[in-house]
């Protein structure tokens, strides 16, 4: 049966057509398509790699940022603490100083007051002495002018003295 026998005309046409097809496709189609696809694949791989790198960088940056923020916060806290402490210390110092100053002032004032008081007492004493002397003088002057009374007074004094002597 001729179905199972190759036909020379068809074989020749097939050879011609297939070889032309092969040459055309091998020259103009397959290398271009495969090259383009592989270059695209490379591009995609490269892009993926880059994206991954970028993500990694971003992550590390974020970490760094977080660290910086945490450090800053710690620093801030520390500074605030320090400031507070300093503040307290200063206040305490100021208080102590003020207290001591006040105490000094009070002491000085008391001293002054004491001295003043003593002075005043001394003055007063002097004054009182002078006044009493003056008064005594005046009394004496008056007494002396009255001879009778004077004699009387002396007598009383003498009497008093007599009384005193046996006693002593």
């Amino acid at each position: 049966m001729n179905l199972f026998l190759p036909d020379s005309g068809l074989v020749i046409w097939m050879l011609i057509a297939f070889i032309i097809l092969f040459v055309v496709l091998a020259k103009f189609a397959w290398p271009g398509i495969l090259k383009s696809v592989s270059s695209r694949q490379e591009h995609i791989e490269e892009s993926l790699r880059k994206a991954e790198e970028a993500a990694k960088t971003l992550e590390s940056l974020e970490e760094k940022g977080n660290k910086i923020i945490a450090d800053a916060q710690a620093e801030q806290l520390k500074m605030v603490q320090e400031t507070k402490n300093l503040n307290k210390q200063m206040i305490a110092e100021a208080k102590a100083k003020a207290e001591s100053e006040a105490a000094k002032i009070i002491e000085a004032a008391q001293e002054q007051i004491k001295t003043d008081k003593e002075n005043a007492i001394k003055e007063l004493r002097k004054e009182v002495a002078a006044l009493s002397i003056e008064m005594a003088e005046k009394v004496l002057k008056k007494e002396l002018s009255d001879k009778k009374a004077q004699t009387q007074y002396i007598n009383t004094l003498l009497a008093g003295m007599d009384k005193d002597t046996p006693a002593s």
Binding site: L21, F28, A29, P31, G32, S36, V37
Partner: peptide
């Protein structure tokens, strides 16, 4: 054969131009 050439040659050209 014509159909194959008309499909794949323009396809290759397009792929090379805009990979």
């Amino acid at each position: 054969c014509t159909i194959l050439i008309l499909i794949f040659v323009p396809m290759s050209r397009k792929y090379q131009k805009e990979p």
